[in-house]
């Protein structure tokens, strides 16, 4: 089993919270994971950029529209985790 296969939803969620908190310049603890990220202030260009960062981190193809299809951090992590 390589490290990519070990990516659980919990780990992905943690990563998403970090990335989005850094982008929005607010503390990670203030990021609600059950709200659409667009409501937090992520725009359409950034959503595609984040899908690209996920692609690098997870080492597999992620569709650019993944954030539209799974709009909250919880849903996205659930979808991408095992």
């Amino acid at each position: 089993m390589n490290e990519h296969e070990a990516m659980t939803a919990a780990r992905i969620k943690e990563w998403l919270v970090e990335v989005i908190a850094r982008r929005l310049n607010i503390p990670a603890r203030d990021i609600p994971t059950d709200e659409p990220v667009t409501r937090l202030g992520i725009d359409s260009t950034e959503a595609v950029v984040i899908s690209g960062e996920l692609q690098v981190w997870l080492g597999r193809r992620i569709p650019p529209t993944v954030v539209w299809d799974h709009p909250t951090i919880d849903a996205l992590a659930e979808h991408l985790g095992e």
Binding site: E35, T38, R39, L40, G41, I42, D43, E46
Partner: peptide, 16 residues
């Protein structure tokens, strides 16, 4: 949050 969401949904714009 409501303002951000509305602006994003209607215009694809992020309010900084």
């Amino acid at each position: 949050g409501a303002m951000r969401e509305r602006i994003f949904v209607d215009h694809g714009v992020k309010l900084s």
